[in-house]
Design a protein around this nucleic acid. Structure first.
Lengths: 230, 230
DNA sequence: ACAAAAGTGTTAATCTTACACCCATGT
DNA sequence: ACATGGGTGTAAGATTAACACTTTTGT
């Protein structure tokens, strides 16, 4: 079979972080090409001999140098034939979660600049990246309720209030503090440590830890993580 | 930017049907090439000037002539570089649902043969299609519980017992008949018709209809479809 | 009259929601 | 002593789960 096909394959990553009680997205400023100086998602073309996964990880490494806690394929954008003005490109988009609190972004790299933007204060972005971002945010919101991915956005040891805030912020709703704690603890996958967070105000708060092993074990026994409040 | 990339983009469709209380999958027998006579998913290469969606619909038309009720992108398979022995291909897979009960498959077409297979009695399939089928089945199972897609697998007017059986079969569990009916009816999206099904045995059963308009309206008001039994 | 599938209600148990006061620390 | 955020329990309401007999038809 002779096959003349001229479609290029790219990957893009929507990298979410969580800092100062805000959901953040990592964008880079294009260094080259027609779209120079526009903000865009981390991404690039897939090499002939690398998997899609390898491609995203490579781009993440090259453009930002960050280490992600979670990576999941989101969707493949290929219904807008002219989404890239240069030639036909389909993009396989991935959602990545990182603990951004202490993350240092590489200053020098393939990208001219890399910055965190609050999800509510996004700049104009290149291509169809606005649409991709929207889809990614929706996915994050829904997945948060049935998979323990919130833990991938905060430090290994965290305050209950941080976790609670994360849920309130990302799901954009109020959650009763007592009910939230009760439910999370009832799962038995979050455990108290001996340490305390260094708050400046109020009663010192214990640090907690997500026990992923326990979670995986419970999942095998049929456990379903589910956080959903009115 | 010079871009030498030699990756081909294909689409594949996992077409589900439901007949005789069994979940079925449509496979075609390859007519050409190295993989001649192997069973495989409906699919093919994307043309330069068609969207991914158009590509799947075209392939469905060309290879089977069926009309689908539901089509949804599933996942893009591109982590196995040698999934196609000929050259590097990434495949964007779609799940399609059809009402197969009265469907006539085209005999002549691009495919040598097209047949329904029960999900539990699948033949060997080409490429990584076994993996794709598994993922599709998982998606179908989970989506069935939170989207009203079961209706896309049965006739417009159906018996409650058919719907119930569909859920039991696809989710592979027993569901209490009374509780099931109660819950579905409580949503107010399924309505009784005046007609009766033509059963040969037992008390005649009323036909019901899914009111999609009502459903869409309720969704706007925040309604969440959810069927989940112990 | 009997076989076969349709249709139907109630109760106990569980889960969810709503809600307010005391505690431990720093200033 | 006060301001700040942390920590905790209970009761009412809603939802889910379990369960069996009657109805309508064809044979």
């Amino acid at each position: 079979m002779e096959l003349k096909q001229n479609i290029k394959v790219a990957v893009d990553a929507i990298v979410f972080g969580y800092t100062d009680n805000k959901l953040q997205v990592l964008l880079i400023k294009q260094k080259f090409g027609e779209l120079k100086n526009q903000w865009a998602l981390v991404g690039g073309f897939v090499k002939d001999n690398e998997t899609l996964n390898e491609a995203v990880n490579r781009e993440l490494q090259e453009e930002t140098g960050i280490k992600v806690n979670y990576l999941e394929q989101l969707y493949t954008f290929g219904d807008n034939i002219t989404r890239d003005p240069r030639f036909r490109v389909i993009s396989v988009a991935y959602v990545a979660l990182v603990n951004s609190s202490k993350m240092v972004l590489k200053a020098d790299s393939d990208a001219a600049d890399a910055r965190w933007f609050s999800i509510n204060e996004l700049p104009n972005v290149a291509f169809d990246h606005k649409e991709i971002l929207k889809k990614a945010y929706n996915r994050l919101q829904s997945k948060l309720t049935y998979q323990p991915i919130g833990f991938d956005l905060i430090p290994k040891e965290f305050l209950f209030s941080e976790l609670e805030n994360l849920y309130c912020t990302i799901l954009a709703k109020e959650i009763d503090r007592r009910n939230f704690r009760k439910k999370i603890l009832s799962f038995g996958i979050v455990e108290e440590t001996e340490k305390f967070g260094n708050k400046t105000k109020g009663r010192p708060a214990k640090l907690y830890r997500f026990n992923r092993l326990k979670y995986n074990q419970l999942v095998k026994e049929g456990f379903l993580f589910d956080i959903n409040f009115a």
